[in-house]
Design a protein around this nucleic acid. Sequence first.
RNA 1: GGGGGCGUAGCUCAGUUGGUUAGAGCGCUGCCCUGUCACGGCAGAGGUCGCGGGUUCGAGUCCCGUCGCUCCCGCCA
Length: 597
Amino acid sequence: MHRYRSHTCGALRESDIGKEVRLSGWCHRIRDHGGVLFIDLRDHYGLTQVVADPDSPAFKMAETLRAEWVVRIDGKLRKRPAGTENADLPTGQVEVYITEIEVLGAAGELPMPVFGEQEYPEDIRLKYRFLDLRREHLHNNIMLRGSIIDSLRTRMKAGGFFEFQTPILTASSPEGARDYLVPSRIHPGKFYALPQAPQQFKQLIMVAGFDRYFQIAPCFRDEDARADRSPGEFYQLDLEMSFVTQQDVFDAVEPVIRGVFEEFGKGKKVTPKFPMIPYADALRKYGSDKPDLRNPIEMQDVSDAFRGSGFKIFAKILETRGNAVWAIPAPTGGNRAFADRMNSWAQGEGQPGLGYIFWREGEEGGAGPLAKNIGPERTKQIADQLGLKVGDACFFVAGKPKDFVKFAGSARTKVGEELKLIAQDRFDLCWIVDFPMFEWSDEEKKIDFSHNPFSMPNMGVEEFLALDPADTDKLLSINAFQYDIVCNGTELSSGAIRNHRPEVMEKAFGLAGYGKDVLEAKFGGMLNAFRLGAPPHGGIAPGIDRIVMLLAGEENLREVVLFPMNQKAEDLLMSAPSDVTPKQLKELHISLNLPKK
RNA sequence: GGGGGCGUAGCUCAGUUGGUUAGAGCGCUGCCCUGUCACGGCAGAGGUCGCGGGUUCGAGUCCCGUCGCUCCCGCCA
C-alpha cells in the first residue's frame, strides 16, 4: 500500500465497500460522541467521514486529534447505517472504520478557522493565506482561475497564436504608470524596470516576423490599489497580431472572451455580439467609458427644457457656452423618499445636491421643486423626451459636461443599484471605440496623449503629417485606433492598432510637445526597429484577474489571486517589502535617505 | 497626498443617557455522551476595550491626537 494513501478523500463510493483503504488529509470537523467519534477528513479532492468507536485500536488516538491536524488513516470502508447517509457529500453513502491513525502534521490553535463560511478580517486572512486557501470558497476560486487560464491558452492557440516569454528585467516602459525599479549591481546608479506590460517587446516580436503573439503576462505597476486593481502586479492575456485592421483584432479576440464567459459563466447570458460604442457616446449616455450595460438607464441632454426657465440656477449655468443639463431617468423611482435619498447621497459625494422631478398619482404633471420652477409645459417636455410616466423620477446634473460626467455616471449607477434595475443574470460585454488621440492637460496647459502614445491615428497619413500643432480644436477631435473591452462596468482590456510609422510617431510626439530627443531616449529601440521594416500591427491585453473576478462573482481581486498583497502593497505572509542587509545595499551602491519620522 | 468606515477574548460580534465584577457564539482546557455531519450537555481558562493624552467623582462609551485595516478620490487602463 502507498505510504500515504490508497484513495483521495473524494474518491470512495459504495462500490469500494469492504476494501482496506488508506486516506491522508486534514481533520476538517471532529464530532466526538464519547462512544463514537466522527472525523470529516478533507483533502483537495473532497471529504470522507471516518469513524472510530472504543473497539477500534485507534480510538484513544482519535480522541486527541484537533481541527486541521494532518493525519493518515487506515481502515475498512463500510456502508453507513441506514438513515445516516449524507446526501450532500459524494462520499456520503460510505464511511471508513478506523484501525490506525498516524499524525503527519499537528496544528496549534487556529488564528482563523477553516471550517464554515464566516468572514474574517483582511489582514488575518492575508497573514494566514495558506489557511484561507484551504477553505472551500477560495480554494475553488483559485482552481477556477487555473481553468480559465487553461481555456484562454487553448483558445488562443486554436486561433493561431503562439506563446512567447518576454523579459521581466527590462527598461522602463511607456504605459504611464510608476515603474518598479531594480538596481543594477554591475552598473552603479543604473536601474532595470519591471515591465508595466510587454508592450514594446510584443511589438518587436511583430517586427521580427512572428505574426501572432500571446502571453499570460505578468505586469508590474507601482500605483495605489483599488478593489479591482491589484497593487504591484497582475496578469494580462497579452496579444499582438501583424497585418491587421481593428476589425481583425476584434474578430480574433471576441470569440476568446465570449468563449470563456460562456464556458465559466454558470449559465449567465453572455452578449452574443459585442456592440461597438464610440467613446463619446459612452460618456453621453452612460457617463463612463466603462459602462455597465446591464443598467438600462441612458442619460440625455435636456438643456432645452431648462434654458431660460424659471429654475434660475440651471438657466444661469446654461448661459455659458458649452454648458449643459443632463437628465438621468429613474424608472420606478417616483417617490419623494427615493429622490431625497439620492439627493443626500449626492451631497455625500461632494455635490451641492441633485435636482429631481418625480411623477406620482395625483401629480401626473410632475412633483418636486424643479417641476414647480420650470412649470408644467417644460416638465412634460422632459417626460416626453425621456419616456417617463407616473411612478418614475428623473435626476439632473448641470454644468460643463467634462466636469460633471464622472459624477453623472456614478449617479446613473447609484440609481440603477438602488432601484434594482441592474440585471444580475448577464455578462454584458461591449467594445468602446474611437478614443480621442489627444486630450487637453489642465496641469501642463498643453495637448497630451490621452492614452498611450502608440496608437495609430484614425486619419490618413498625409493629412496627419500636415496637422498644425496650434490647431488645438482639430487635434482634440482626432480619434485613435484605440479600443477597450468592457464587461458589466469593468474595464477588461485595452488595445490599439499601433503606430508603426516612424514619421507618424515623430509627428504625434511633436504635436504633444515632445521633441525627437524624448522619443529617441525613451523608445529608441522600438523606433529603430520601425525604420527597418515594420509590419502594420495591433493587439490588446485583457486583464486576467478581472476576468476571473467577474466569473467567480467576486468584488475584490484578492479573492482570485493566490497570494495577494494588501492595499499598501505589502505581502503580510512573506513580509515583503522588507529590510535588506547593509552588505546587499553596498553591493548595489545604494545608500538610504529615509524620510524623517 | 485627501475623504469615509471599522478597531472590545484566538476569531465573529453585543455592550443603553458615561455608573458595581465588560457579555454571547465559535475556538481552547476538563468531564459526560454509541450515529453525528453547524452533534449535544456540564464546568473552566481567556480582555491594559488599538495606542497616547484630556474632560469627569467615575470613560469601552465624550473630546483631541496617533497607529492599523479597509473602501473611495487623486494616481492607474
